[in-house]
Design a binder for these strands. Structure first.
Lengths: 142, 142
DNA sequence: CCGGATCCGTTTCGATACTG
DNA sequence: CAGTATCGAAACGGATCCGG
């Protein structure tokens, strides 16, 4: 609960789990403009907390990727509810992917999201995103 | 999402919705020792955000109570998931009421919790707490 | 008394510059 | 590109004071 009381940690987890960001630079270029020193601090904290893992590339020392541990993945329902609460039930932007997600079955969304992250993906990011798969499946069901 | 990135606001909402605290003094005497200036600031912010309402007593100006708006009540699922994540699936204290809650059906807990708060109660606080009712019902079902 | 404002030393932030 | 160094500005939080 300590970690999610900090807004930057929350944002990092959001970028990691919903947008599929993995590198220092990607987090740095987030919408909210986090400073590099603060980012480094929060990444270290999250790592110490067992929520993310830092894995430097063996070939190129400059390349470091961050990914969620099982404990980090377990925070997905929390992010889901945070997003739902943040939207406030208001239907403003029909092109917003979050809108589409919230219209789907909660359990199915969470299951697909979990699976995607475990396979190195995320909710929205990448070609094999949970969102893309859910949409494809939705089309089949109809 | 802004409001729940702040740990004090989060704690205030927790005290309000799970422990049934309603007054400045009660929040002040919370486990985490929030300072009066910060508390006043956060209460004002939450009020401006339409998440809580401040209602001074008409008879006694010293008595002021804070309660959750519909928007604040809508944050209950978020608190539920935060609590669940915070426990980390670990079974440490069998007397912990949160443990008992997590063993119950999610939908039923959320429904009872919502109802209790709307009636001026909370999850754990007070005689007519959602928890007390859920336990009573559980005993009947068996 | 109780809700809150004021004051003040300390911590944290965030932005830019810099290093390997 | 990943991360440090630095520094002024802001926020914190703890103690104390004030008004109804």
């Amino acid at each position: 609960m300590e970690t999610f009381g900090d807004s930057w940690s929350l944002l990092i987890m959001r970028d990691l789990l919903t947008l599929g960001k993995h590198t220092f630079g990607e987090f740095l270029r987030s919408e909210e403009r986090i400073g590099p020193s603060v980012l480094a601090d929060r990444l270290a904290r999250l790592e110490r907390g067992g929520i993310i893992v830092r894995t430097p590339s063996e070939t190129d020392a400059r390349k470091v990727t961050y990914s969620a541990t099982e404990r980090g993945i377990a925070a997905i329902p929390l992010l889901y509810e945070a997003a739902r609460w943040g939207m406030g039930g208001v239907r403003m932007d029909t092109d917003d992917p979050w809108e589409a997600v919230m219209a789907m079955d909660r359990d199915e969304v969470l299951a697909a999201w979990h699976r995607a992250v475990r396979e190195g993906g995320s909710l929205f990011g990448g070609e094999e995103s949970a969102f893309a798969r859910l949409r494809a499946r939705e089309r089949v069901v109809r």
